[in-house]
Amino acid sequence: MAIDLVEYCFEMQWSDGLPVVPPTRHRVDQMLGLLLDSKDYVVATMQPSGARATRELIAANSVMAGCMSAYFPVVEAAIEAISDPGFNLDRVATTASSQVPIFVVNGPLAGDVGLEGDWEVLSGSSRASATIGRAAMLCLRNIASHTSGGMPHSTIGSPMSRGLCFTENMIDSPWGSWHISKGFGAEESWVSAFAADPPVVLTEMGDTKPESIIETVAEGIALAGTYNAFFRSDLWLVLSPQHATVFDDAGWNRDDVVSALVESSARNPQDLMGRGLYGYVDQLRPPVWLEQSERVTMVDRHDRMKIFVAGGQFGGYTAVFFGQGETITKRVRRAQTDGS
């Protein structure tokens, strides 16, 4: 009797709960394509397992996620990004919070693989956006032992636990690509990763002044119960093109928006004392910044706030991704004919 390979993958606990494409030898070899001869190449060491993520392992998980072979270099860069020591994957993979890695792809390859930055950009409704993030999350599960053999670790979990990967709307954005604004090569493609909580989507439709959007979004950022309020590390914002255009029409650039949001979302230390993570960690000994600052910003440096422009052409929305840690960006390496 023939084995049902999809059911077999469930039995082996390789799946994230949804059916996977069985990683047959034929499919994995196809996924590797020109890289087949270097299938044992170690792309990264993944924590907490300390396991070596070889190209073949990443390819097998990419097959299961439903990726096309053209996506593989993007997945590989995503794994490099989250395995970078600065990403602190062992913390991300074991935290009780709801933070999971999310990815933004910038550069020419984003469009080449079919990532779309307009309508439903965070919905994962194109094959590329649905499967690239999923492949990375399956690598966490199956290589980094994200679930530690079925061990739950996140108290509430995340609706993004099956992956989130998006790109910017380069047609309707007034500012050009984020990666170019940060000095990454325009001709190359890049994957940036961040450990994020599920987004809070804020709307400001009533007024088309920049100050109105700043006020509304800053109120949404200034929450005492976020990890940002305590760790003050990176924070991602996805502005709809309409919001970005309001700023641009008034002569504001990305840095102007960041400065206004950082300052407007700052809180009085007394408002934070004993609340959120401050309540758990430092009831008696508040951290230095809480004792010595008149105002506590939700990021400790302006460059920690990353602004992307994505989404459909119409609608005044901004999505806020709270989280913890640094954004790590890696270049996507296209496969060469020699397999490198």
């Binding site: 084995i3 390979l5 077999y8 993958c9 390789w14 069985p22 990683p23 047959t24 030898r25 034929h26 994995v28 070899d29 993944m46 397992s49 300390g50 396991a51 070596r52 993520a53 073949e56 392992l57 390819a59 097998a60 998980n61 097959v63 299961m64 399956l138 199956n142 290589i143 980094a144 032992s145």
Partner: peptide
């Protein structure tokens, strides 16, 4: 084994 049926184990043989 038939490469259409043989599965590649996607999990790391950790240590």
């Amino acid at each position: 084994m038939d490469p259409e049926v043989e599965l590649v184990n996607p999990t790391a043989k950790v240590f």
